[in-house]
C-alpha cells in the first residue's frame, strides 16, 4: 500500500513541477483544419503525405490554421479525432479507410462539427456532418494495365500487392482488366507480400516475377514496393520496368520507372476543404474522384519512356472509361 501511495505522490510531484497546462484552446472565427493520419504517419510517401500537401495548400492560400496528429495504433484514432473535434476545428480530416469506424463514432458524438474521410464511404451510411472522399483506383490501375499490356515484350507482366484486402484487390482488378483490354495475349502474375512494410519480401517477389518472364511490374504495396524499385534498378534499363503507385515514384528508379498510378488525395482534400470554407461542401455525401475528375491518373514523367503513340492510346482508353463505354471492374 505504501508503495502505491508513494508512487502516486511521485506522479503528483512530476505534474506539479512541470506545471498543469494543457486543455483545449477553442478556435473561433478563423478557418481551421485538423488532420488525423492512419498508422502510416505524416510523411509516409503516400496518401497521408499527399493529404497534408493539400491541406498545406489551403493554409497558404486561405490563411487557415492547420494541424496534424499522427496515430501510432488503431486505438489512437478516436482520441485523435476527438481532440480536434473538441477544439472546434472547421473541418477534421480522417485519412485512410482504417479510420472509418472511429470517424462514424466521433462524428455522431460531435454532430455540430464537420468531418471528412479519405478512402472510405463508411459502408454507405454517411452522417450528415461528414463528407466521404473515395478514389476510383481501379480506373487509374486500368490505364497502368493498358500501358503494361502495350509495352510488354514478353507478354507477361506482374502485380505486386501489399496485404490481400479489398482495397488492394481493387488495384489488381483494374490493372488486370487494362492488360487484357490492350493485349489479350498477355498474362498477369500476381503476388502478395502480406505486408506493407517488408521491402525484402517485395524485392524477392519482384525478382521471382522478373525471372519468371515478366518485364513490367505494377506495385500497390506501400513500403513493400520499395523492393520492386531496388530490384529493377539492378536490371537492364529499357528492358525491365516498374510502375509506381500513389505519387510519382520515378525518383526511386529514374531509368526504370515506366509510370505511376497517381492518386490526387491532395487535390481532393484541397477542394473539399475550400468548399467547406465557402459552406459548399457536399456534407453527408460520397464524392468519388476518378479519371474524369482528374482524381487518378499518371504523371508527366510517363512521357520519358513512353512514346506519343502509346500515350494517345492511353488517352483513348481514358475517354472511353469517362464516357462509360468501358466499365472497369472494381473487384476480382
Amino acid at each position: 500500500m505504501r508503495r502505491v501511495l508513494s508512487v502516486f505522490l511521485f506522479l503528483c510531484l512530476v505534474v506539479g513541477t512541470t506545471g498543469c497546462g494543457g486543455g483545449g484552446q477553442t478556435t473561433t472565427g478563423k478557418f481551421t483544419i485538423g488532420m488525423v493520419t492512419d498508422v502510416g504517419g505524416l510523411n509516409d510517401q503516400s496518401f497521408n503525405q499527399s493529404a497534408w500537401a493539400g491541406i498545406t495548400k489551403v493554409k497558404n492560400e486561405q490563411k487557415a490554421d492547420i494541424k496534424a496528429l499522427e496515430s501510432k495504433r488503431d486505438e489512437d484514432y478516436i482520441p485523435n479525432l476527438t481532440r480536434f473535434a473538441r477544439e472546434g476545428r472547421s473541418i477534421t480530416w480522417a485519412i485512410g479507410f482504417k479510420l472509418d469506424k472511429a470517424l462514424t463514432d466521433v462524428s455522431n458524438s460531435f454532430a455540430n462539427q464537420k468531418f471528412g474521410i479519405v478512402d472510405s464511404n463508411l459502408g454507405g451510411k454517411i452522417p450528415k456532418n461528414v463528407v466521404a472522399v473515395t478514389f476510383k483506383e481501379h480506373e487509374g490501375s486500368f490505364i497502368m494495365g493498358a500501358l503494361a499490356g502495350l509495352k510488354t515484350k514478353t507478354n507477361k507482366v506482374g502485380f505486386l500487392g501489399g496485404v490481400t484486402s479489398p482495397l488492394i484487390q481493387k488495384f489488381e482488378a483494374g490493372y488486370k482488366a487494362g492488360v487484357k483490354a490492350a493485349n489479350p495475349n498477355a498474362e498477369v502474375i500476381t503476388a502478395y507480400a502480406e505486408s506493407f512494410g517488408d521491402a525484402t519480401k517485395g524485392r524477392s517477389l519482384s525478382k521471382n516475377m522478373f525471372n519468371s518472364g515478366a518485364d513490367i511490374i505494377f506495385q500497390a504495396s506501400g513500403g513493400t514496393g520499395k523492393g520492386l524499385f531496388d530490384e529493377v534498378k539492378t536490371r537492364e534499363a529499357g528492358k525491365y520496368w516498374a510502375i509506381g503507385v500513389d505519387m510519382d515514384q520515378s525518383f526511386l528508379a529514374p531509368k526504370h520507372t515506366l509510370s505511376s498510378m497517381i492518386k490526387r488525395v491532395d487535390k481532393a482534400v484541397y477542394d473539399i476543404s475550400k468548399q467547406t470554407k465557402e459552406n459548399k461542401a457536399p456534407m453527408g455525401k460520397q464524392v468519388e474522384f476518378g479519371l474524369k475528375e482528374n482524381g487518378v491518373g499518371y504523371p508527366e514523367s510517363t512521357k520519358n519512356f513512353v512514346d506519343e503513340n502509346v500515350i494517345k492510346q492511353l488517352e483513348d482508353y481514358k475517354q472511353q472509361i469517362i464516357s462509360g463505354k468501358i466499365k472497369v471492374p472494381s473487384s476480382l
Binding site: T164, T190, A191, Y192, E194, K201, S204, L205, S212
Partner: peptide, 20 residues
C-alpha cells in the same frame, strides 16, 4: 521456407490456397 512460400505465389498456388 520463405522461398517456398514466395514461389507458391508465383506459380499461382494462391488459386487454391490463400496467400496468408
Amino acid at each position: 521456407s520463405v522461398g517456398l512460400s514466395l514461389i507458391g505465389q508465383i506459380i499461382k498456388l494462391t488459386n487454391y490456397v490463400p496467400s496468408e
